[in-house]
């Protein structure tokens, strides 16, 4: 982790109807850092991801990438800059075989020139990527239509689609949710490898135990506001954070 700031949010706000989904949230993401974002259900985590990646326009505030104001940029331009996101609700191309899903991502202008020619064979690169995230190579799974893949594989596919873009920053929205302990354990080395490669990660997670092993810092959202920030162990001792989590547990 370096002190160089790669992504910065300044007073981001967005409301839907009367609900303030994200309310004056500011934070900085340093190069090669793993920053966790936690918070109870409906606290605005996914909305924050959408604000950072251009899927939702903020009512107020700014997003800076490497010092450049990218507020309100369309999603495809943000992705071209090198900010890749995954979706909490997986979004595979259901009609396509698993590995062909990646051909679409590999067709991105960001990497098109790097893998094969204009009509170059992207299949091999796609299969390599799937193997990296834990698909068994040469197994039936990679040829399987995405519609019939088990949830665990769809989550990995989301990660692989991000990695296909060779991004600088990966914004992963609840990558671990719905996965078994073993599946999470198998993904942790993949994440660690990305960090070793110098990537920067923003990880939205509900699985705190697993997140705290990887994250350098976390920020905590509650009702759209940032209520705490710092090292995982310290943040969890914060009375406000305890309150937020206890509150939701009492309700649920």
């Amino acid at each position: 982790m370096s002190s160089e700031v790669i992504l910065e949010a300044l007073g981001l706000s967005r409301s839907f109807g009367g609900v303030k989904a994200v309310d004056e949230v500011s934070f900085t993401l340093h190069k090669n850092e793993v920053l966790g974002v936690i918070g109870p259900n409906g606290s605005g985590k996914t909305t924050l991801v959408n604000l950072l990646t251009g899927f939702v326009k903020p009512n107020q505030g700014q997003v800076l990438y490497q010092g450049r104001d990218i507020t309100g940029w369309p999603p495809y331009k943000v992705a071209q800059l090198g900010i890749a996101r995954s979706f909490q609700m997986v979004k595979p191309f259901y009609q396509l075989p698993a590995f062909k899903n990646l051909n679409v991502a590999l067709y991105s202008p960001r990497v098109r020139g790097l893998v094969g020619g204009r009509y170059g064979d992207r299949d091999a690169v796609a299969k390599d990527l799937l193997e990296e995230v834990g698909f068994e190579r040469d197994s039936w799974v990679i040829n399987q239509q995405a519609a019939s893949l088990p949830h665990g594989y769809l989550k990995r596919l989301e990660l692989a689609k991000c990695m296909a873009l060779r991004p600088e920053v990966l914004v992963l929205d609840e990558l671990f949710s719905g996965l078994s302990l073993a599946e999470v354990a198998s993904l942790v080395p993949v994440i660690e490898k990305l960090v070793a490669q110098g990537k920067t990660l923003l990880m939205i997670e509900h699985r705190l135990k697993e997140l705290f092993r990887i994250a350098d810092r976390v920020i905590v959202l509650n009702f759209g506001r940032k209520i705490a920030e710092g090292e995982p162990a310290v943040v969890m001792e914060d009375p406000q954070v305890k309150g937020a989590y206890l509150g939701t547990e009492a309700e649920g």
Binding site: T53, P75, Y76, F87, P92, F93, V104, S108, K161
Partner: peptide
């Protein structure tokens, strides 16, 4: 494949940096 992707899930195509 990209065109079919747009039909299947346009947001996923956008997130790959492609102007759908």
């Amino acid at each position: 494949l990209l065109l079919k992707g747009i039909k299947d899930n346009d947001r996923a195509v956008m997130s790959a940096g492609i102007n759908i």
